[in-house]
Amino acid sequence: MSALRSGQRRRAGAPGGAWFGLPLLVDGFVLPRLLRRPVRLLARAGGGELAPPRFAMTIATGALLGAFSLYGAYVGGHFPAMVQSITARTGFAVDQVRVSGHKETSEIDILGQLELDGWTSLIGFDAEKARERIAQLPWVQSAAVRKVYPDEIEVRIEERKPFAIWQHGRELAIVEENGNVIAPFSSERHAMLPLVIGLGASEKAAEFIGKVEGYPELASRVKGYIRIGERRWDLRLENGVTIKLPEHGEVQAIEDILAMDKESGVLSRDIAAVDMRLNDRLVIQLTPEAALRRNAALNEKPKSGKKPERRI
């Protein structure tokens, strides 16, 4: 319609109007539809046809000061805190946290990593940074943090699986199947995990324990798996007997000692260790008490076997 009127003005020889001394209409040119209304309003304001509101200058001054304040807060790094404060007071303050998937990790530790306070706004809350902080907790393998509007945070975690207790020196730690340390051993609920001892034991334990568990009659009696020189294993039984296995042929050595135990009960005797490292012989080490009894018995034999004296 404006274009038609402009055309009529041109045909009638009427002036096209001006805004601050500049002509608004040019021969052969039609403004796009989106710009026609703003240009007409500006032209009317420039021509004095529109009267400003009563408090226009006050409003404009306030808007200008507010814009400068927002810009200053943004440049100074205070804008996120401002957003948090405003949105928290308008119904978006975090009021509830739901945690799932945790067994070893306490909710207190998880809440601490969320870094919430009484006026944390869900709008300004950074869920990704919170997820990264939670993932740093010892037992957490992966974590997911989700914002549920208007005032709830949902945390789902997946924890590492304990495999064994690793003793290195005087320290005890819970390790995964691949040997990675999870956390120091501090809870009796993990006391039933296998105990592996020695340098390199945590990395090699899974494969070796799998071999021993193939023989339940032996695995049920094992108290500790000892790694010797990062080359071979010893088995410490519940009754204190140590089975010294060779570096190679562990399975065959286990089958041999189990066959002997079934035949003569060697693993239930008063002995300290059974050495299976030699291919051609079995070496049994007695306990100190058994060694004393054996020496005493050997010393008694000559006396009991001495022929009585003949008197003439």
Rank of each mutant, 00 (worst) to 15 (best):
S2Y: 09
A3M: 05
A3T: 12
R5E: 11
Q8P: 02
A12V: 12
G17E: 03
A18K: 08
F20E: 14
L24C: 14
L25P: 07
G28I: 10
F29M: 09
V30M: 09
G48F: 04
L50I: 15
P53T: 05
F55R: 14
T61S: 14
L70G: 11
G72F: 08
F79L: 15
I86H: 10
T90V: 03
F92C: 10
D95I: 01
V99R: 02
E104R: 10
T105C: 01
S106Y: 01
E107R: 06
G112F: 08
D117P: 12
G124L: 09
A127V: 06
A130F: 00
E132A: 12
A144L: 05
D151R: 11
E152S: 10
E154Y: 07
I157K: 04
E159H: 00
K161I: 13
P162L: 00
E171K: 15
E171C: 04
E176F: 02
S187T: 01
S187Y: 07
L195H: 08
L199I: 11
E207C: 07
I209P: 10
E213R: 15
L218T: 06
R221K: 05
R221Y: 01
V222F: 01
R227D: 13
D234K: 04
L235D: 02
G240T: 04
V241D: 02
A253K: 06
E263L: 14
E263A: 13
A273R: 11
A273C: 12
D275R: 05
V283W: 03
V283L: 10
T287E: 03
E289L: 13
E289K: 08
R293I: 01
R310S: 14
R311Q: 10
